[in-house]
Design a protein around this nucleic acid. Structure first.
Length: 488
RNA sequence: CGGGGUAUAGCGUAGUCAGGUAUCGCGCCUGGUUUGGGACCAGGAGGUCGUAGGUUCAAAUCCUGCUACCCCGACCA
């Protein structure tokens, strides 16, 4: 049972759901979490599906080292600011036992040059690209890496911001600015579709204001989603890096006219934060609700009193086989440790979309009870119809939770031109507020101080967004609305 | 990095003010009965009370220092 309710204490509810659903737990070291098998299988499914899409669009996976030398990381001037995030540094390479049999660092083993645990891999990759790229014929390089990174964050939260996180980071190199920008936008669209089609999360595409862009990028594109408590969460970014890294690492190519040019670059990523977004977008006071397309278990079959009637386990196994053959991730929980009631609760907390229970009633009436997690509805379906009904129901659930999230986002997205109204909205209901902004960092900071809301992005609304107006705070000229929200 | 909280069995906790045999629930082990919404009975195992020191005949409890984690905020691809 989940003790906290969303409306009473959202962040305690969130923690309780993560832990009781067995997605992850605290490791005992600040900011480092243990991703449990259930959570990791969810990540594997996300990873598998996104990986397929990236491969279909021509990207290849590679792997670069975890440790980066300090000197390489310092090449790109702006990029050094990433140090301000805090990094983990390797300074020694040996440990030894002291008199009390305790482990100490062998001070004689101090490294001449410290190594940084990658906070992101642009530097090592661009150092490598210098060797890989000579001619326009070597371009584009469309490379992706699945791995981990470490950022020494002050304030951590399970999945949303952990010291170590798992992610994919794409790093591409192009012969022209136009092509690189197209790539960055293409990835943004892939992320958007992935969020919608797999995770059932509607997002807003946008550009980060200049003061919030990634250090070392020219344009930072992002997707922002709205959580159930009215706060925004950035769930993916795609950067047009311009020639910043190619200049820092002196990566030039010879173009068709025989002239040398600096290479154009992008980088982009999504992380285990996606799992946090899924939890906060869909789940309810009873626990997780996982979108069927990515749910590690799509259907759970629970037998009732199977000891009394051998037909119960026979029918259960038959249904398991039918659904498995249909490609549905189905689990038959025939353990004797717990009662059916315990299992009902357990798989509800875990957010399994469909539950089938099979007992004497099902045998007698040749109909089985099907329960859907998102609405709590139960229906009886004849056994012959199961193989058609279940896939359709999985789709219905996927669509339903997307619609729910979409409606919530729409209802909490408002255009406002009055600052008092703005303050009230942010304070009371949260949500995305579309308002004019004069483009200055100072105004952004003032608004943040007074309301806790920040500029999430300048939305890309295919021209519709161009509209002259006055900044909601300063009253100065503005030619488009930006999205303000409190955020994670 | 500022503020708050916590640390007792695998987990969650009582006991701390007022020093005197380590509390309860879950879980675990054995046996039996159960099983349609977190089953029940009987028996059993499990503890450097975060850490270092101090006061005392006696410390989970009082005093001092330290450490770790969690929460809130600031920061933040």
């Amino acid at each position: 049972m989940i003790n906290y309710k969303r409306k009473d204490n959202y962040s305690k509810w969130y923690n309780e759901v993560v832990i009781k659903s067995k997605l992850a737990e605290f490791s005992g070291i600040k900011g480092l979490m243990i991703i449990r098998p259930y959570g990791y299988s969810l990540w594997e499914i996300i990873k598998y599906n996104l990986d397929q899409i990236l491969k279909k669009t021509g990207h290849n996976n590679a792997y670069f080292p975890l440790l980066i030398s300090k000197s390489i990381l310092s090449k790109e001037k702006e990029h050094i600011d990433i140090f301000s995030d805090g990094c983990a540094v390797v300074t020694h390479n040996r440990i030894k036992k002291n008199k009390n049999e305790q482990i100490t660092i062998d001070t004689k083993s101090k490294l001449k040059e410290e190594l940084i645990i990658r906070p992101t891999s642009e530097s090592i990759i661009w150092k490598t690209y210098k060797r890989w790229i000579q001619s326009y014929r070597d371009l584009p390089i469309l490379l992706n890496q699945w791995g981990n990174a470490v950022r020494w964050e002050m304030r951590t939260r399970l999945f949303l911001r952990t010291t170590e996180f798992l992610w994919q980071e794409g790093h591409t190199a192009h012969a022209s600015k136009k092509e690189a920008i197209l790539e960055a936008k293409k990835i943004l669209n892939i992320y958007t579709d992935f969020a919608k089609n797999f995770m059932a999360i509607p997002v807003i595409k946008g550009i980060k204001p200049h003061m919030d862009k990634f250090h070392g990028s020219d344009i930072t594109y992002c997707i922002e989603a709205l959580m159930q408590d009215g706060k925004a969460l950035q769930i993916g970014t795609s950067h047009f890096l311009g020639q910043n890294f190619s200049k820092a690492f002196n990566v030039k190519f010879v173009n068709k006219n025989g002239k040398k040019e600096y290479v154009w670059a992008t980088s982009w990523g999504v992380s285990t934060r996606l799992i946090g977004a899924i939890i906060m977008s869909h789940s309810d006071d009873k626990g997780l609700i996982i979108p069927p397309k990515i749910s590690p278990i799509q259907v759970i079959i629970i037998p009732i009193n199977k000891q009394k009637n051998i037909l119960i386990s026979k029918l259960s196994k038959k249904i398991l086989q039918i659904l498995t053959e249909k490609g549905i991730r189905t689990k038959y929980d025939d353990t004797d440790i717990h009662t059916p009631g315990w299992k009902f609760n357990e798989y509800e907390i875990k957010g399994v979309p469909i539950r089938i229970s099979i007992g004497d009633n099902e045998i007698k009436h040749e109909k089985i009870e099907i329960f859907r997690r998102d609405t709590y509805e139960k229906v009886l379906i004849s056994i012959d119809n199961v193989n058609n009904f279940v896939p359709k129901l999985l789709n219905d659930i996927q669509e339903n939770i997307y619609k729910k999230a979409l409606n919530r986002t729409k209802n909490l997205t408002l255009k406002l031109d009055n600052y008092n109204e703005f303050k009230n909205k942010i304070k009371n209901s949260g949500g995305f507020i579309l308002s004019h902004w004069d483009g200055t960092e100072k105004t952004g900071k003032q608004i943040q101080e007074e309301t806790e809301a920040t500029i999430r992005c300048i939305p890309l609304l295919s021209g519709k967004n161009k509209q002259n107006g006055k900044c909601i705070y300063s009253g100065k000229k503005s030619n488009c609305r930006v999205i303000f929200s409190k955020s994670y």
